[in-house]
Design a protein around this nucleic acid. Sequence first.
DNA 1: GAGTAACATGACCGGGTGGTCATGTTTGGT
DNA 2: ACCAAACATGACCACCCGGTCATGTTACTC
Lengths: 217, 217
Amino acid sequence: MFGQIMVSKTFINLAEDKKKAVLQSAVREFARLGYQKASLNTIVRDASISKGSLYQYFQNKEALFHYIFEQFVFLVKRSVQGGGDVSSLHFFSKVRQVFWAGIHFVDYYPEYFQMYLKVLFEADVPGRENLLARVHLFSSEYFGPLCDEAREKGEIRDDIPAETVIFMIDALISSLLQGYALSYLDSGLELKRMDKKDISSQVDKVLLVLEKGLVKT
Amino acid sequence: MFGQIMVSKTFINLAEDKKKAVLQSAVREFARLGYQKASLNTIVRDASISKGSLYQYFQNKEALFHYIFEQFVFLVKRSVQGGGDVSSLHFFSKVRQVFWAGIHFVDYYPEYFQMYLKVLFEADVPGRENLLARVHLFSSEYFGPLCDEAREKGEIRDDIPAETVIFMIDALISSLLQGYALSYLDSGLELKRMDKKDISSQVDKVLLVLEKGLVKT
DNA sequence: GAGTAACATGACCGGGTGGTCATGTTTGGT
DNA sequence: ACCAAACATGACCACCCGGTCATGTTACTC
């Protein structure tokens, strides 16, 4: 939709290697410093191109950034939805799948994820509300039907609104991924140091509480 | 402890009005733009002082920022601990108290809270890990004993480690406050538009799930 | 009221920024 | 072989930054 506006055909037609180098340098810089502080000078130096070329590919800093964020959204969707057929699973198993999709995303695209976190808390990113809305829209479009279905099947209680359930799942996944991606955000779990098996049992514990509650039965 | 180093006695002896003006301008600017992008020029303009004066009060930008963050930590502690005697309450009532202390904190000190959020996701804040560690230390020092006690009393199940419980409470409180403070972080609850009564019932629902789980009993 | 110490001021500095553009180089069609 | 169009280059621009410092102003002591 924005494709034609934010990136020139010169860039589209570029050799694949060069394209990757430019995108990778840009993602890395945006992940490191956020939108405003990211330096185009650094990006062009890292990507071994000239500044003039960058401005031939993208109209300006904003267009470059939006192009990369679009890539991020695409990768997120593919990660969550590409996890194989899920329709036969129990509600909590589906939620577990999403937890794991998140963990894998951070593993495969750590810089994209960190860039996203930067956008979350940087005030003057152009078009930021739209960018974040797109991510959140995906989240509620995905979990909303899941909740409704689970409620119909009687898998979860019906005196808690779907929005509240989504909120809690969102909060727990976000915090878990943030702790996993950035150790200093970890609130005591030390996820960064765990191997996959320990992380798995952590996720299981969180889901157990979500399912059965903190009070022993 | 750092008091003598990071702020001059000239500033301490300043007229209360002027002191407040300087601090307020600085907090506002750091909240708006984060550490790196915050402009000392803007701060001195807002506070109606000269740049030279600012440098007579604080050694540099970093010292000013650390002084303000220290204020933040002090205000947080006072907000959570100053909520009256709590020792006789049930575990979940205590947790509810902390939720409310957070809501009130955001109401009273929105700029301090936003500044804190900025620090969370800004990479090159000097001494950032220390700053965040101090906040998190307080959180686990507060909730740790609470969990242990609740487990002894049999108020919560004993097959979930305290760290996991703290992680979940932390995640839910953080997300709730972030959604409350910054509407674009809201994941569908629209907390920003609620009155206190609706927020209260939202908190209750989250705590109900935490207590009894999502599966109907 | 003179003298001095504390405090206030803003022009100025080196450096980095996003963005521009005249110039040079490569490419491909004929 | 030639030429035009597409692409690459980096010096350059205006602007803003954090930080400095010579100079001015205020306040207090005797």
